[in-house]
Nucleic acid binder design. Structure first.
Lengths: 127, 127
DNA sequence: CTTCATGTAACTTACGATGTTACAAGACTC
DNA sequence: GAGTCTTGTAACATCGTAAGTTACATGAAG
C-alpha cells in the first residue's frame, strides 16, 4: 500500500504515515519502495513481532501521563513525593509493557479477521 | 500561607495556585480565608487523607498517556487493538491508584521532615 | 474606608503533536 | 531519456491544551 492509501485508511496525512512508518522500517518490520508501484509492505513474521517491539520501534514514548518529571528536583517536597511514587509508576509501566510483550501482530491479525468475518455474517443475515 | 507565597514556593502564579487548590478546598482538605491575614490552611487530618483522595479532588486526571481514545471507534483495526489492551491499561491504572491509596499525607510529611533534618545535619558537619 | 486576600472569568502565551507544503531522489513505463 | 509515480525529509503552519496573566468583584481585618 502507498502512504496515500494508508493515510486514507487512518484519516490522516501521507507524510504523517511516512514519519511513523520510518520507525517500523528501521526496525525491519516493514519495507518501503520508491517509484512506480512502490509503497509499503510487511517485512517480518507477524507471529514473531509483539506490540512491545512496535512500541520500541516507535521510540518508546511516554506511557504515563504524570510520573516523575525531574530526576532530582531542587524542591524537597517534590523529592518526597517522588520517593513515595517512583516505584509505583515503574511497576505500573512494567506491567503494561509486559502485556505489550504478550500480544503478537499475528494474534491481532487473527482477531481482526475473526471479527470481520462475524461482521459480514451479520450483514448477510439482516440485509 | 497566601496564594502568593505558595506560588513563590512552586515557581508559579498565584492564580494557578488558587485554581488548583479549589479542588482541595471543595474536598475539605484545605480551608481558605479572604481578606487581611487570609490565605490557606490545612483543614483535615493528614493521616486520614491519601494521595488517592488528593488525586480525586484534583479531578482524577488521565494517568495513562496513551490508552483507549474512543470507546467504540469506527475503525476495525483500532477496535482490535483496543480489545487486546483495554484490560492491560485498566490493570496498570488500578495498580497505580492502589498505590496512591497507600500513601497518606502524614507519611509524606514525616518523610519530608526526616529528610530536611538529615539535610541540616549534613550542612552543620561540613559548613 | 483602606488594605489585603481569595474567586473567577476572560484573555494571552507556550508548547507539543499533527498537518501541510515543497522538493530532492529513486524506480518504473513508454 | 522523458514523464510519472512514489518515498524521504526538511521546513513551515495549524490546532488544542495547559499554564500564565490581567482584571475586577467580593469579603475580612484594622
Amino acid at each position: 500500500m502507498t502512504s496515500e492509501e494508508l493515510a486514507g485508511c487512518m484519516m490522516t496525512n501521507p507524510v504523517v504515515v511516512r514519519r511513523t512508518m520510518a520507525g517500523l522500517r528501521e526496525a525491519g518490520f516493514v519495507r518501503s519502495a520508491k517509484g512506480h508501484g512502490g509503497g509499503w509492505e510487511i517485512a517480518c513474521d507477524l507471529s514473531a513481532v509483539t506490540l512491545k517491539d512496535v512500541y520500541d520501534a516507535l521510540g518508546a514514548p511516554q506511557l504515563m501521563a504524570m510520573g516523575i518529571h525531574l530526576e532530582s528536583p531542587a524542591c524537597l517536597v517534590e523529592q518526597t513525593v517522588n520517593r513515595s511514587l517512583t516505584t509505583a509508576f515503574a511497576e505500573a509501566e512494567a506491567l503494561l509493557i509486559d502485556r505489550l510483550r504478550t500480544v503478537s501482530l499475528a494474534q491481532l491479525a487473527d482477531d481482526f479477521r475473526a471479527h470481520v468475518a462475524a461482521h459480514k455474517r451479520n450483514l448477510e443475515r439482516k440485509p
